[in-house]
Design a protein around this nucleic acid. Structure first.
Lengths: 230, 230
DNA sequence: CCTGTAATTATCCAATGAGATAATTACAGG
DNA sequence: CCTGTAATTATCTCATTGGATAATTACAGG
């Protein structure tokens, strides 16, 4: 079982240059740990497997991250950090209310579809009752910039009379995330129950507009909307 | 670690009567296994712990269920079975379209809120890519009766001009379940990010009407609705 | 070149936990 | 009352796996 040459498996560069590079090594461990944790969960993920895939020794993982749990926390921080970065590129301010809402919905849907490992990681962390995300200073401080954007879109929409005044940014965010995450997170039990392929391009495309539609119909004002656009 | 007297811990009845009762023993194992799997996941759940809580020996678990995975499948079957039973009691046929939709939404929400272990179990099964639900004859055959009810509600609503003709029962079911499950399944990461208590009675009550509102606004016809009710 | 430090490795260890073996015991049907 | 069968127990095994110990080696700064 313990093969002699576990090293150098994941290495394709000139082999010389990047040994003894603290930051690069840590980043490599993190990326592979991310994949392993997302695939197998906190218990299921295996330190030996991570080491083997990273082309290093298991000891090195503990050298940098102290314990499996701390490694998991570091992985969570990285994953959430990437999402935050993506959200910053979403410029909703320039759009009209309806376009902004639809763009927000589609962006969120696309992100989750493109990052199922992230969705799985979040599900795993919830199974563990969020005890790691709580323990992380970085994560508890990490506010989600998208909330501010949503608030501004809502404010604008309300002042224009296009969006209902009682809509709350956090509720809207929860609604959207619920719809978007479900398509990835609960894919398997849903498919098994209804013999429904949620991964086909058509199904995804349909769900994508469906979610935008749900969201827009939820926030728009009763009278104005139907006539105002189109 | 291996305590001598693990027996008789969960026993409160007259102690004599119900020993050597195949069905009762199996049912007890199933119930406790359900709780343990929901709490700790497929890997995290421990056969020794289940045995101890059930007041039996670990061997007995394997005697009845062969393996941990088969036990997990049996637990899934039981849990889904209970949900199906609950769904059958939902009589939507007699209600007007809007009332039916709201009742459906609230019933679903209440069910998930009342059965967080079930929601966790489903999340765990999805982490495992639904491989157990697939393997179970019983579960793949088990159609969800609620779909039929939704279809009838939609048909009636459409013929009355209260519900949009393009609404699909499965999409609606997915939308509702996404919203409802999220409030339980993603509670912890959501709360950590927004310092938002989703378990308080007020938050739950608010979310409950919110979800019904989202659903109804999604399915209703553009013109009729705003005037028709109230 | 030389050397101290930090990155990295090789190897070991102790706990855990799923499942197996084989003995024991309750009880239904004769 | 007797006995075969099925329920139940006590005990063992062995693979897995986090984490620990201690040795080794690359390389930056003198």
């Amino acid at each position: 079982m313990k093969t002699v040459s576990t090293r150098r498996l994941a290495q394709d560069e000139p082999a010389k240059v990047r040994r003894r590079d603290r930051e690069k090594t840590k980043a490599e461990i993190l990326q592979i740990a991310f994949e392993e944790f997302a695939e197998s969960g906190l218990l299921g993920a295996n330190a030996d497997a991570i080491a083997a895939r990273a082309g290093i020794t298991k000891r090195l993982i503990f050298y940098y991250f102290n314990s499996k749990e701390e490694l998991f926390i570091a992985v969570l921080e990285m994953a959430y950090g990437k999402m935050r970065l993506a959200e910053e590129d979403l410029h909703l301010e320039t759009l009209e209310p309806e376009a902004a809402i639809r763009r927000l919905a589609e962006f969120t849907f696309d992100f989750h579809q493109a990052n199922p490992e992230f969705v799985r990681l979040v599900a795993i962390e919830n199974i563990h009752r969020g005890r790691h995300i709580q323990r992380s200073e970085k994560l508890t401080r990490m506010t989600r910039p998208v909330i501010g954007q949503i608030e501004r879109v809502l404010a604008k929409g309300k002042s224009l009379g296009a969006i209902r005044p009682e809509i709350d940014a956090h509720e809207l965010h929860a609604t959207l995330n619920a719809l978007s995450i479900f398509s990835v997170a609960n894919r398997h039990t849903f498919e098994a129950q209804f013999h429904w392929d949620m991964t086909s391009p058509e199904a995804k495309a349909r769900r994508r507009v469906e979610i935008a539609e749900v969201l827009w119909r939820y926030v728009r004002c009763d009278k104005a909307s139907a006539i105002a656009d189109q």
